[in-house]
């Protein structure tokens, strides 16, 4: 069902854990749909310097969380906002059709985290 890249990412996920000093946190999904993805980012001078995630979900959800948080690390928030689920799927060499929604969640969680950061910056200004 899963290809080797997905299994590798799932077996040794990167960026796992909550980030106490994050300045942007985004969540996608909900308990009843079976997946909850929470992405933490730390932004310095518009650049995402650190990322992490907490995910309750299937192997694909964990693999996409790991991959998405890796992909946006070092990017400016403008660049990271352009991250699409298709890019994450491509980087994972594909996902089974019924698991594509996991990559959509990753895209949504990244955007939510960036928007959370932006709204905080706005408030403090």
């Amino acid at each position: 069902m899963y290809n080797e890249t997905v299994m590798k990412e799932f077996a040794s996920p990167q960026n796992v854990g909550a980030m106490p000093d994050a300045n942007g946190v985004g969540q996608a999904g909900n308990e009843s749909c079976g997946d909850v993805m929470k992405i933490y980012i730390k932004v310095v001078d518009d650049v995402i310097v650190e990322t992490s995630f907490l995910t309750f979900g299937c192997a694909a959800a964990i693999a996409t969380s790991s991959m998405a948080t890796t992909m946006i690390k070092g990017k400016t928030i403008a660049e990271a906002l352009k991250l699409t689920n298709k890019q994450v799927v491509k980087k994972l060499d594909g996902l089974p059709a019924q698991k594509i929604h996991c990559s959509v969640m990753a895209e949504e969680a990244v955007q939510a985290a960036i928007n959370d950061y932006k709204s905080k910056v706005k408030k403090s200004n």
């Binding site: 907490l54 995910t55 309750f56």
Partner: peptide
């Protein structure tokens, strides 16, 4: 569970 936002 360490990875789970629900557990946290």
């Amino acid at each position: 569970r360490e990875m789970s936002p629900l557990f946290k």
